[in-house]
Design a binder for these strands. Structure first.
Lengths: 143, 143
DNA sequence: AAACAAATCTGGAGCTACTCCATGTTCCGG
DNA sequence: CCGGAACATGGAGTAGCTCCAGATTTGTTT
């Protein structure tokens, strides 16, 4: 009677999938790797979800979109649930993440630049044999 | 006596690894997935490499740095060796690649923007409880 | 030549973050 | 009570490596 109303949803895995946009397989996967709170079962073994699970899934999705790995998310979840994850820890984790992302962007931009050069070089030469591929194959084009 | 001088190197896999910067495991892996030309063996079974292998490895490394998948590289290698890979095909492959990279960069930039917002939000509030993590955990922060 | 250490061999497992599959069981409307 | 949809489980597959154990080969030293 005094249960928190917010955890009463009683949803099937299909419902949860539609609500959150995560696939059924993904939801079960998150459970298997201990990212989800415990899930009740019907007498027949079907999973029964509550609002808490919906929120956890939303958290995972948001964090993934921020570029966090499942391992990092697990750390935050465990730390926060245990009450030990401070604001500072959270910030430094996010900062680490941001650095990684900046590095990835740099790498990709370099790749794009090289790609464009390659495409241009290929287009400028007299067709049908611009030899760019051959030179690449021969290992002549570095960087 | 009239062998092409350029294919005479006679290198061990360790030598090749040092020369190219690819790990021994990676070199064997490329062989297993048919990205490398045939490799001779000593009577005892050790691999013996030539300059051709060095060039192929360089090609793979450059192409990987351009963002090509091993499957795409295989296509180019096979196509070029068979003489059937034209400049146009090569260009359209590179263009496809470039599109993918642009998409990835966009995604990463979005992630970075969101991360920065999150970090700022975490920093502005009165410590020690800025509640940003809690709100995220509760699924309240979307996008 | 014998001994020894370093390098190499093979096959297989493990990683991330899912996705897909076959086969079997449960749920629910009519 | 029956049929079909939804669910359960275990296992395999993806990319691109990396790492491991245990056996063999190679090259150097004595």
């Amino acid at each position: 009677m005094s249960e928190p109303q917010s955890s009463r949803a009683n949803l099937s895995i299909g419902d949860v999938s539609e609500l959150t946009g995560s696939s059924i397989d993904t939801i079960r996967y998150y459970e298997r790797v201990n990212l989800m709170p415990e899930v009740e079962r019907t007498s027949g073994g079907h999973r029964v979800y509550t609002d808490e699970h919906i929120r956890r899934l939303a958290f995972i999705r948001h964090s993934r979109a921020l570029g966090l790995s499942l391992e990092q998310i697990r750390q935050v979840v465990d730390g926060t649930e245990g009450g030990s994850y401070s604001c500072e820890e959270w910030q430094s984790l996010l900062n680490l993440c941001a650095e990684g992302i900046v590095r990835q962007i740099d790498d990709l931009r370099t790749a794009e630049r090289n790609l464009r050069e390659m495409i241009d070089a290929c287009g400028q030469a007299e067709l049908p044999n611009c030899r760019v591929v051959e030179r690449l194959l021969a290992g002549e084009i570095p960087q």
